[in-house]
Simulated assay, not measured.
Amino acid sequence: MTTTAARPAEAPYVSAELYAEVQAFYARQMSLLDGSDIDPVAWSQTFTEDAVFGTNMQEEPDVGRAAILESLNGGLKHIHGQGPVDFRHWFGMVDVQEQPDGSLHTRYYALAMATPQGGSLKIRGHMLCRDELVRRDGRWLVSRRHLEADGLPA
């Protein structure tokens, strides 16, 4: 999966049913990290065992579910180590491209927001996200994710 290819204007759209499945997948995935009842292990299980998770903020991507979970736990410790906070994600402008092998390439924008108790909303970051989703045992999993934080080299 490339990280710089844009969706051609003439590419066919996926069905409304498939698009809704992808939206539901992301809503469920990210709800595992939002609020006071987070479940990082369950979130990590939305990735394949050999998934690759990279960003333009790291030199090398995390490879494998265990490495992704370890990296996530470090980030959550940093966020929640600053005191009680409501942490939320918002995904929008989701584009879905079905591939000949049945996998999906998605492209979307994400906001990560934190609101300290009694404080004001702080946007922690805005990202351009690209995923490859694969269906395993009747459910979608992320096999590749690449995040590009605004303001940094791609």
Rank of each mutant, 00 (worst) to 15 (best):
T46K: 07
T46N: 13
F47N: 07
F47K: 01
E49N: 06
E49T: 04
D50N: 10
D50C: 01
A51W: 08
A51E: 06
V52W: 08
V52H: 05
V52M: 07
F53G: 00
G54Q: 10
T55A: 11
T55D: 03
T55V: 05
T55G: 05
T55S: 15
T55Q: 08
N56L: 06
N56Y: 07
M57T: 10
M57F: 00
Q58Y: 09
E59D: 14
P61D: 14
D62M: 12
D62E: 10
D62R: 13
D62Q: 13
V63H: 14
V63W: 11
V63C: 11
G64L: 07
G64K: 03
G64F: 05
R65S: 07
R65I: 03
R65Q: 15
A66M: 14
A66G: 06
A66E: 15
A66C: 07
A67Y: 06
I68D: 05
I68R: 02
L69G: 04
L69Y: 04
S71K: 13
S71R: 15
S71I: 03
L72I: 08
L72T: 13
G75Y: 09
G75L: 09
G75N: 11
G75H: 08
L76C: 01
L76E: 02
K77Q: 08
H78Y: 13
I79M: 13
H80W: 13
H80M: 12
H80R: 15
H80L: 14
G81A: 11
G81D: 08
Q82N: 12
Q82D: 09
Q82L: 11
G83S: 06
G83L: 04
G83K: 04
G83I: 02
P84H: 08
V85R: 11
D86M: 09
D86S: 07
D86P: 00
F87V: 10
R88I: 01
R88Y: 02
R88E: 04
R88K: 05
H89K: 08
W90C: 07
W90A: 13
W90K: 04
W90V: 11
F91P: 00
G92K: 03
M93G: 08
M93R: 05
V94G: 01
D95Y: 01
D95T: 03
Q97W: 06
E98K: 15
E98Q: 15
E98G: 06
P100Y: 12
P100W: 03
P100I: 02
D101S: 01
D101C: 02
D101G: 01
G102I: 12
G102T: 12
G102D: 12
G102M: 08
S103E: 03
L104K: 05
H105Q: 13
H105T: 15
H105C: 11
T106F: 01
T106L: 10
R107P: 00
R107K: 03
Y108K: 00
Y108F: 12
Y109T: 07
A110H: 00
L111G: 06
L111V: 11
L111C: 08
M113Y: 05
M113S: 12
M113K: 00
A114K: 06
